[in-house]
Design a protein around this nucleic acid. Structure first.
Lengths: 340, 340
DNA sequence: ATTGTATTCGGAAGCGCTTCCGGTTGTTCG
DNA sequence: CGAACAACCGGAAGCGCTTCCGAATACAAT
């Protein structure tokens, strides 16, 4: 099936073309110092024998790697896939290979950070969507590699992300503006990742405080990212003696889950309960969900570009890029019943 | 910031440990033929100086690559992300690196298949979710690499996928069993990919035919994968003089889009119109969508395992693996109005 | 004491490429 | 016509590792 046809080497091509290996190399790499005819001859021979270079040898000789690692906790979630697409697109453009590391569980992470230094495989690593722990940072520094974070604030490294606090405020202020007084929050947390207090949460409290509204602990429930979890959280909110008239969810997926609970409880959206999410996940538009849009793909692209300039040895124009978010009103939010 | 601390080489470690480079190599690789003390000494020195091997050199010397490419048209769509997760998990387990190639547009594809052979970078490639064209196949064969297809039927190469026809029948038979007589189909197509007649479509016609129901062309509309497109397609169906009482969509995303159209048209699901999708996308559960479930992650895992056995030079126990699908009934399907 | 067998180790030859450096040509200018 | 210079090319030295092979030492068997 797979004929192990002997791979030709540069030396073979050189010999066949009747030139030295140095010349062959120059011809193939489009370096100067080779006459047009010689170059053509080499190229022809190479094409004829389907010559392909050995990237290992090239890299060994040149001393660079041309590879960057992308580390993320998931890929099946839209946000991550989208961001990785962005990264891949610009990196490939630059001729750099993208190595994928999927580190879902804490255990995976640990093993990733342990083994990484053992194999000097990449020029840089892009960490997508989770904070890097102290110990992990130490490992990373060991191998003398550039690090960039995308889609997760991370002051330690150059990073690109949204302003979580601002996004949260956009959502909350919208609800407040509509006249809601009793607003619930479904706080998204990640069990597997070391979690830091999110700006999305403090935005909730600040907004309430500024509106002179009480902050009632029973109105905030937390749930892992994900629709099912959002649904459960919403069930909790719904079982309150006096449920909220509006809900602010940390993500669209969570919000959509919550919507199912509301629907199943026989309540209508937005007549009985308003709901707003964050992300502008494709599903948001399909569900007519009001949300705070964040550009995801470009976060990936920007992070990749940072890596590129870092790789060129240039300084970063700015260590932290914050991409802007905007409220996208659809039809899951409306003034509370009594105000209509 | 990034101290370009000189990287130690094997030779350095060997010298420091007072042994030959051969011995150092053996010690580090846990080969036999090294006394315990010597080995320990080398290991200590290596640890102390944070020695990391150069994978290029190792590969050059050993002659193998240890890398496989995963090629997919998207990553932000759940199906692809999930399948890639599966692949990555088993390949990493085996110590193999996963290179990512995202080939959304036709153009991307072309350039991918053109350049791939120019850099003998991988031992195998896994093609996810799209058929490989003739010309591309030729390129692939050129570089003497294993090829496996996942999530897309592809008789040419070893592959793992679902039985599209069967899945379609499961959906259609369900609708038919409920008593629907006028069933629409939203056929998903991919503009950027060479498309082959899908088993999902022939299932529709066969099912109708077997039930002695007429096949009306106006009842089938096609749309690119994606919610918005599904919504538009549904609009078309809705604008028929007599719209269908049930709709079979080729994917959940399309189905969910269609649901929005139905909802916006003031119709109720399933009372006025039933709808069934394929995939069991997480969103399906959130929308209470009846669908035909396919195991996605395991398709990725199985494909990766195929690659592994291929890489070991063993023959494949079976060239084609078909994973089974099952109807998952939720609440978007019910008997048509008049039959209740 | 001698021969034999294991065990441990180091030298050195690659792996396939890039690149420095010096040698040949061919051209141009004084 | 000779010198100066450019353009082109080949030999060979790495790049950092693995691995073959032979040397050295140790220890058991004769």
């Amino acid at each position: 099936m797979n004929s192990p046809r002997p791979q030709m080497t540069l030396a073979d091509i050189a010999r066949l073309a009747g030139v030295g290996s140095a010349t062959a190399s120059r011809a193939l790499n489009n370096d100067k110092g080779v006459s047009t005819q010689t170059r053509q001859r080499v190229l022809d021979i190479a094409a004829q024998y389907a010559y392909v270079v050995s990237p290992e040898a090239v890299r060994l000789a040149k001393g660079n790697l041309g590879r960057v690692a992308v580390v993320a906790p998931h890929f099946s979630r839209w946000f991550f896939g989208e961001i990785v697409e962005g990264i891949e697109a610009v990196l490939r453009e630059a001729g750099i290979d993208v190595l994928l590391y999927f580190v879902g569980s804490l255990e995976d992470r640990r093993s990733f950070f342990d083994k990484l230094p053992a194999r000097r495989k990449v020029d840089a690593v892009i960490v997508v969507g989770f904070p890097v722990e102290k110990a992990e940072r130490a490992r990373l520094e060991l191998l003398n590699v550039h690090i960039v974070a995308a889609g997760g604030q991370h002051a330690v490294y150059p990073n690109v992300c949204i302003d979580d606090y601002r996004a949260g405020r956009q959502a909350m202020d919208h609800l407040l503006f509509l006249g809601h007084q009793r607003i619930g929050m479904i706080e998204a947390v990640d069990l597997d990742q070391p979690t830091e207090p999110s700006g999305r949460s403090s935005a909730y409290r600040d907004a309430l405080r500024e509106s002179k509204l009480p902050i009632e602990p029973e109105l905030v429930v937390s749930a892992p990212w994900g629709g099912e979890q959002g649904a459960e959280a919403m069930d909790a909110l719904l079982s309150l003696k006096t449920p909220p008239t509006a809900v602010y969810a940390h993500s669209d997926e969570v919000a959509v889950g919550a919507m199912r609970s509301i629907r199943r409880a026989g309540l209508r959206i937005p007549e009985d309960i308003s709901i707003v999410g964050i992300d502008d996940h494709p599903i948001a538009s399909l569900m007519d969900l009001t949300t705070v849009r964040q550009p995801v793909r470009s976060q990936g692209e920007l992070a990749a570009q940072m890596v590129l300039t870092l790789l060129e040895g240039k300084p970063l124009p700015e260590r932290e890029i914050t991409v802007s978010t905007q409220l996208t009103m659809r039809s899951t939010t409306a003034p509370p019943r009594q105000n209509r």
